[in-house]
Design a protein around this nucleic acid. Structure first.
Length: 271
DNA sequence: CCCTCGCCCTGCTGGC
DNA sequence: TGCCAGCAGGGCGAGG
């Protein structure tokens, strides 16, 4: 499930193939994903040169020399396949570069998206404008988090999934960060104490940075046609571990549903 | 404004 | 072996 670290790893994998390169062919194989593809997608991208790649939250940005930026979201099952042996089911968009490399956007569940946005207006484009601070940047502070959680009755787990509070966290990394910080996902936002905030910020940063490092360590694999990513799964301490022993105290990890999504936590370590 | 819920979509898993 | 219900969940809109 692509969250911030997976999108970051994806962009690092794509950069050598796309940055500075001209797109010689753009093939759309279905009308769209979550939303229809922009009607002028092929026209705008064909012959365009990619000037840079970047990330905002879980969005990947492919900047071009045509004053338009292609913004993609991987949703639940999206991934880019690099130089695949053959076109596969769910390869919805295929870019070919001047150098002959093929990049296929594959998304079985089609929760992802592809948009074209005026490069000069990226910051004001709706989905990006509403985002909170980057968790690995300087703006995610204990003070910011404290202000965002203050007075909220929603569980801290649900609030951390809100992209307007912190941009880029998903279900897995929220569960992992809360475990590292010793905070129960069920605690109300308003019940997160001042002294809990710096450890929570640190936990968020640490788990994301460690996951990116793990993804980066398998970036060589990413460049293979099968496109498999290192998903950091071996390092999950609570996610998907219902009934297994907490690495910290040995108590069994429990699972609960919050806002229609699974939460995993250690009831002994997380209060 | 705050909060919850349901929808979208398909591959995988487990039960029978 | 085959069938099928249930589950996975990010973003977004509807409704209380």
């Amino acid at each position: 499930m692509p969250e911030l670290p997976e999108v970051e790893t994806t962009l690092r994998g794509l950069t050598p193939y796309l940055a500075g390169k001209r797109l010689s062919r753009v093939e759309v194989r279905r009308a769209g994903l979550r939303r229809p593809f922009p009607p002028d997608l092929v026209q705008v991208l064909t012959g365009a040169r990619v000037t840079a790649l970047s990330r905002r939250a879980k969005y990947g940005l492919i900047h071009t020399d045509r004053d338009q930026t292609m913004v993609f979201h991987l949703g639940m099952s999206g991934r880019w396949r690099i130089d695949p042996d053959a076109v596969e089911k769910h390869d919805h968009l295929i870019l070919t570069t001047e150098a002959g490399h093929v990049l296929a956007l594959n998304d079985a569940r089609r929760f992802g998206s592809v948009d074209l946005v005026e490069s000069a207006a990226l910051d004001t484009w709706g989905p990006l404008a509403a985002l909170g601070p980057e968790p690995l940047g300087p703006d995610l502070t204990a003070a910011h988090l404290g202000a965002a959680l203050a007075g909220r009755v929603s569980p801290v787990k649900v609030l951390l999934l809100d992209q307007g509070i912190v941009a880029g966290l998903g279900n897995i990394y929220v569960c992992e960060a809360l475990h590292r910080a010793g905070i129960s996902p069920q605690r109300a936002g308003a019940a997160v104490r001042q002294k809990d905030l710096p450890p929570l910020v640190r936990a968020i940063r640490d788990v994301l940075a460690e996951s990116i490092a793990a993804g980066g360590s398998t970036i060589r694999d990413y460049a293979q046609p099968n496109g498999e990513l290192g998903y950091f799964a071996a390092n999950w301490r609570v996610y998907g571990r219902e009934g297994e022993a907490c690495h910290g105290c040995g108590a069994p990890i429990v699972r609960g549903v919050q806002a229609s999504r699974s939460s995993f936590w250690c009831p002994a370590c997380q209060k």
